[in-house]
Every structure is written in structure tokens, then in C-alpha cells.
Design a protein around this nucleic acid. Sequence first.
DNA 1: AAGTGGTCTAGACCACTAT
DNA 2: TAGTGGTCTAGACCACTTT
Lengths: 257, 257
Amino acid sequence: MPKQPESKILNQTASINRDAYEPVYSQLAGILRQSMAAGLLRPGDQLPSEAQLVERYGVSPMTVRRAINILADQGVVVGEQGRGTFVKPVAMSAATFHLGQFQTLFSDHEHTTVNLLETRIISADERVARKLGVKLGRRTIYMRRLLLSNNEPAFYHREYLIYDPKRPIVEAELEVIALQRLFSGNSESLLKHGNISIDATLLDDEEARLLKAPQPMAAFCFEHLFYDFDNKPVSWGWFIGRADRVRFTTQVGLSLE
Amino acid sequence: MPKQPESKILNQTASINRDAYEPVYSQLAGILRQSMAAGLLRPGDQLPSEAQLVERYGVSPMTVRRAINILADQGVVVGEQGRGTFVKPVAMSAATFHLGQFQTLFSDHEHTTVNLLETRIISADERVARKLGVKLGRRTIYMRRLLLSNNEPAFYHREYLIYDPKRPIVEAELEVIALQRLFSGNSESLLKHGNISIDATLLDDEEARLLKAPQPMAAFCFEHLFYDFDNKPVSWGWFIGRADRVRFTTQVGLSLE
DNA sequence: AAGTGGTCTAGACCACTAT
DNA sequence: TAGTGGTCTAGACCACTTT
């Protein structure tokens, strides 16, 4: 029996506020998070056992488990059956980056405009045919758009769409607003899933001109390939953004006290 | 009362296997995920109510909630109090990228070696002093390392460490193995939290030479700044990797049937 | 008023680990 | 054998939304 020693945090931390707007499980998760941020619980330390937390904070076992599950999902603690729950050391590999941080670019119609540069039907070349899983020469819709943020070019987007009159998505995509739907999602979507990838590239002449960038310049490329409910590719495209205006940032471990 | 219509999935999908290794809540989450992947539930559709799921699958309300919570955490459904739970449309903005996908580079000692190019004490210049929050001229440890994967250069790493004999981290970091600890974490770590960011850059002459890369070439830069439990910066550094050998990939929506 | 998701309880049983 | 995390039950109450 790995008898759990008395933990500092059981004596001195805050209590649950039953009248608060914040749910109990969330409050408890916060208390534990604070204890770690304050250094009362350090990497490798064992958390108080569930039974101890039940007693100390006057909540039910399920509520304690829920709080701990949240921390485990966030990757700050890890439970080991029969041994205990332990604080995870901070690691660079735990970092996650969210494409959603560019959400404002696509939803803020006040400061963002979409400039449709070109739309035309073209025959799929070898590259397009392979990506979209169609035969060479298949007719597809090719679109070029420029995203402007505060009248400054932010992203250059190119996209190939399967041309199929039966698919409502085609008409929908032809609207300029469709870019926002692609990024933020819309419930009439016929898309089932998609693959997204991030590359670092060099701007070519056309990209540099449109993005008003000097050359050579590094850039981010967000490539996307979406599939419908038949698991057939529907749309392939990529966003190009200047590296000096696009940046991914995230945190690992616990901060903000 | 938004009376929930009979859903197809209540009739035809699999049932819970009480003897399975997989927990019930996880099985139920899987069943619902399958229903979405198969197109029985589409973006915007309402999931069966909790009461219906309780009856259909013969589990308790808490178990149903837990299954739905998992899907909600994964961002594939969203609950609206008093209305129902709905399938989220697939959106590019939901994409998340995990630095942990490079884990093998740091943990696979079979095919990965770390080449310590240089270690020396230097005085902090303006840039280093600002990043590490110390005075100009403060003595710091400067390190350059090259990560080789299968004897091919993969990442070039540079790092500045606060020089403080009282801090055990210094001696630890001086070992070559320390890079893996930085990336994967270790329980003796005194690091509380860190900021990580991703940039796209151009290789300079030195970087291109070490990485055996032609020029010009785009590259990823992973910058890291770690803090101790006094919220003081301890380590600032960055990894440079060739863009043609580093790539982030992820999925949105539901695939694999 | 009825139906919905969201929270919480007070137990139970199990698998695992250390003594 | 005792302590641990992990799962699950069968309810309860609440806030909210729609009819």
C-alpha cells in the first residue's frame, strides 16, 4: 500500500464555493492547478489521493475524479493505477498549436476582406488529379483569393474543387464568403473530414508580389484536402502567409499563478 | 420542449459489450463517432438525447454524459443546454498540431545522436539579456548542438542558459542527454512552464552548412523559453530544421470509417 | 409543462501496487 | 491486506429552451 503522505496543499489552500457560478469540479481542478503553479506540487510529486480530496473538500468521489480527469486531459498530471496520481514534468513535446488562432482573420468582417482574383474551369493536371483522386483532364474549378486584413494582404489562397453540378458545395464555394465557411465550418457542409498540414516555404515571384513582400522571404503554407461522406476528395488548396506576419505560439506547464 | 425525433442510429448500431476490455463510456463514444463517420449523423444533426441513449444502450446517465463529454472535448459535437447536442461541422480552424510528433527524434537512441558542437560562457548581449530577463553582460552558458537522425543532420539547436552554480539544472543541462530531457521532460526538472513558438525562416550560411542544405532554403524554427518556479527565465533557445524534412500534419473531422 | 443538457451525490465493484 | 486509481450505477436537482 503506497500510503500517501500528508500533502501541504491539504492544509492551506482555498475551499469550494458552493454558490459560485463555476462548477465544483472546475473549482477543484483550479485549486490543484494553483497548487502546482505555486510550487506546492512539483513535477514528480504525488497528488493527494482521491479519498483525501473527497474528505478535504467535501465533495463526492465522482467530482474529484472529474477534476483530476481534466488535469490529466490537459497533460499536467498522470494517473497510475494502484500507485497514485503524479505531476508531470514540463516538456517541450507537450506543446500543441491551434490553427484556430487565425479565426479572427476569417470571422471579423469589419477589418477583413476577401478579394477573389480568379475563378475558372481547368483540366486537372497530373498533380491535381493525384491529389483529388480523379482522372487526368477531369474538369475542376480553380480559384485564387487574397485575404486582406486592414487592407494589407495577409494570405494568398489557391484551391481546386471537383466540378460536379449535383454537389451543392460548388455553388456555395463560389461565393466569396465561402472561405470563412471552409475555415470556421458551417452546418450545411457536406465535408466529412480533412487533412491539414503546415509547411515552411519560400515565396515565389507571384506570391511575393501579391503579398507585397520583399524577396527572398520565408512563408507558412497551410495545405488542406477535404473529403465528402463518400470519402472522395472534394477540395484541395493551400494558404500562403508571410512568416513575419504569421506566428504560432503556445505554452507548456502552468503559469499565471 | 424540443422533442427529439427518432434517430436512425438508435435502431441499427452495435451494442455495448460488457466483457470487453474497453470501458463502456469509450465504447459508447466510439459508437457515436462511427455513426458520424458513416453519415448517419451529419453536421448540424441532433444527437439522441441522453435519456434515449440511456435506454437504448442500457447504461447509466453518468456514463452517457461521459461519452458525450469526450466527443465534446474532441470538438466533434457541441452541447446546448435546453436544446440538445449537435454534430459540429468540420472546420479547418479546429486543426491542432502536436510538437510531440518529433518525439522519436529525441527518444530513439538507436538512430539518433546528439553532437555537442560548442559550450562556453558568454556575456549576455542586448537580445539575450532581454529574453532571459537579466542585466547586460550577465554571464550565461551558450551551447550549440546538432541532432543527427540516421547520421543525417535533422535539427540545429542553440541555447542560452542562466549561469548559476546553485541551480542544479546547469550541471544537468551540460550533459548531452539533456536535450532529450528538455523535449520529453524529466521529473527532476526545476522548470515550471515555458513558451514555445513556431516560425518559418530562411537558413543562413552557418545553418545551411551544418544541415547540409542548399540555399536558399526555408526552415522551421522552434523557439523555447523556460521558466523556473520563481517565474524567472532559465533557458532560451531554438531548434532549426529543414522545411523539406519537417512537416506538421493533422486531421479534422472523422475518418477511418 | 415537458424535454434538454449540466452538475452532483454516495455509494459499489474492479484491477493494480506496495507492504 | 490495505491503499490506490478506474469504472459504473441510479438516482437527484438545476438552468435552460421550446411548445
